[in-house]
Amino acid sequence: MSSAKPTVTERAETTQQAPDARSRRDDIRRFFPILLLLVLVAVFSFASPRFLQFNNLMIVAQQAVVLLVAALGMTFVIIAGSIDLSVGAIVALAALVAAATSASLGIYAIVPACLVGAAAGLVNGVVVAKGKVPSFIVTLGAMVVYRGIVLFFTRGAPISIDDERFLDLYSGRTAGIPHSVLIAILLIAIAAVMLNLTVFGREVRAVGGGERIALLTGIRVDRVKIAIFVLSGLMCGMAGLLQGARAMAATAQLGEGLELDAIAAVVVGGTPLTGGVGSIQGTILGALIITILSNGMNIVGLDPYFQNIVKGLVLVLSVFVTIDRKKIGIIK
């Protein structure tokens, strides 16, 4: 018997919604992330006058950068229907490489940092695409391995970065604006162009929307999958460099848990884990929401032991509101 049992996703006309009710719900879905962000800003600036000061906003932006850059790569991975759990470990690996080479290469330590990030992503992508192992498993293992490499070489001790020009370029400020924020804006622009205006971006959506359909339509699914993991690794290379510059050191614990924050940023921004759809704008909002939530709760002086509870609830709440249940069908 053939293995392809029909799965029916064609919707009979009879289950369609009235167009007005549908579009209203679509509007709520679409605008919820920005609404949530505005509400958070309003609440925190009301609770503390310090929140809206230029200095604090720049701190927020700086804090958001590493998460945001990692989440940009994650957006492609998730839209293609995969997941990358090795993000935090790659960031640590890249920061280590940047720290180790900054003394001799100075600002050009960016090259080995990005190369290592891309290579780590390439390994992930090849095992997923050619080895046909689910990305969750591959990157779960990779997370442990990459973190292990960092621990092996550092022996747990931090490696400091002293090169002035390196620190100046990657964590200095021009006219009060941190360079890392400017770099992040450049990366956002590149990611948005790739996702929205290139053929590659369409192929990523097609692979996530229906892998078998994409394959049978002549899309080189393997190449697309490898490319998104390389892209994610490359972004992590940049994120590691920026994080190292900001901390003036690479530590073995750097970026721990970042993968979960990056996934949360993508999802809170309205990109479903089921793949096929998603946006860079959403990811920017998601990363800002997560960062502002932490920053604001600190400024307001909320019990640090209570903060995680709030973060978790906000994550589930925003997915509860933004998820399009009609398109997903089965919730696992």
Binding site: A4, R11, I213, L216, G276
Partner: peptide
């Protein structure tokens, strides 16, 4: 292919896509 909605097209994508 033989199965329209699992092999032929992406139902969540637009007609143009």
């Amino acid at each position: 292919p033989g199965e329209r909605t699992t092999e032929g097209l992406i139902v969540d994508a637009s007609v143009l896509d």
